[in-house]
């Protein structure tokens, strides 16, 4: 079995991981698990960025991964604070029970 480690494999893997994360966002009710699924999607994009960076021999992809990680850290802090505030007001983290903004 001769496996040539080409760009396509990384891109397909990245796409599959992104789709798994997207399905998690759509189907789960727990806000924390939705949050973790968003992290899955961000990481899938990071993987394709690094793969392209390696393929093109260009460092820009890895710089973008660095900035995506910084944004993800900021998102984690604010997102989890929002979940905490929601739980304090509504005593639940299930997103389908939180419908105060539904008209």
């Amino acid at each position: 079995m001769m496996v040539n480690l080409c760009l396509d494999y990384y891109l397909i893997l990245s796409a599959v991981l992104f789709v798994i994360g997207a399905v998690g966002v759509v189907t789960r009710r727990n806000a924390i698990i939705i949050f973790m699924s968003i992290e899955l999607m961000l990481n899938a994009v990071n993987l394709s960025m690094v793969a392209f960076s390696s393929y093109l021999g260009n460092i820009a992809g890895q710089m973008f991964v660095f900035f995506i990680m910084a944004v993800a850290a900021a998102e984690a802090a604010v997102g989890l604070a929002i979940v905490l505030a929601l739980f304090r007001n509504k005593q639940t983290v299930y997103v389908d029970e939180i419908n105060i903004m539904k008209w």
């Binding site: 944004v71 850290a73 900021a74 998102e75 604070a81 905490l84």
Partner: peptide
């Protein structure tokens, strides 16, 4: 951005 996130998280999570 990280500074803003820090302040935002503190404001959101405190009583």
């Amino acid at each position: 951005l990280l500074l803003a996130a820090l302040i935002g998280a503190v404001v959101l999570a405190k009583r």
